[in-house]
Amino acid sequence: MKNPIYMSCLDIYTSNSKTSQLEKFQTGIETEKFKTMPLMSWDIFMTDYYQRIEASQKQMELDQVLSFARKFKWKNDFKSAFAENDYEALVITDKDQNIIWVNSGFTQMTGYSKSFALNKTPRFLQGEKTSEKTKRRIRQSIEKNKPFRDIVFNYKKDGTPYKCEVHVIPLYNEHTTHYMAFERQVV
Rank of each mutant, 00 (worst) to 15 (best):
P38F: 03
K24G: 05
M60I: 14
L118F: 07
N98H: 15
T14R: 01
D94L: 04
I5V: 05
S17P: 00
S67A: 14
T160E: 07
S17C: 02
M1A: 14
Q108L: 15
F106M: 11
A89W: 12
L118C: 02
Q51V: 08
D11F: 05
G159Y: 08
Y13F: 13
N154S: 09
Q97N: 09
K35G: 10
H175E: 15
K58I: 13
I142S: 03
F68E: 01
I142P: 07
E132S: 13
Q21Y: 02
G159R: 10
V102E: 01
Q108H: 15
L22D: 03
D63A: 12
Q26T: 08
S115Q: 13
D48S: 14
Y13E: 01
T160D: 02
H178L: 10
I142F: 13
A117E: 02
Y87V: 15
Y87E: 11
S41K: 09
S131R: 05
R149M: 10
D150F: 01
E32S: 14
T121E: 10
N103S: 14
Y49I: 04
A181K: 04
Q64P: 00
N145M: 09
H178Y: 08
D150I: 00
S56C: 11
D48P: 00
E143C: 07
E88N: 12
G127Y: 15
I151K: 03
S80Y: 06
S80L: 12
W74G: 02
I5Y: 09
F45E: 12
R139I: 15
Y6K: 04
T14E: 08
G105D: 05
F182I: 03
E54M: 08
V186C: 04
W101R: 07
D11C: 03
E61W: 11
V102R: 00
I44Y: 02
P4Y: 10
Q21S: 01
L22H: 01
F25E: 06
R52F: 07
T130F: 05
C9Y: 10
G127R: 06
M7Y: 04
E30I: 06
L22E: 02
T160S: 06
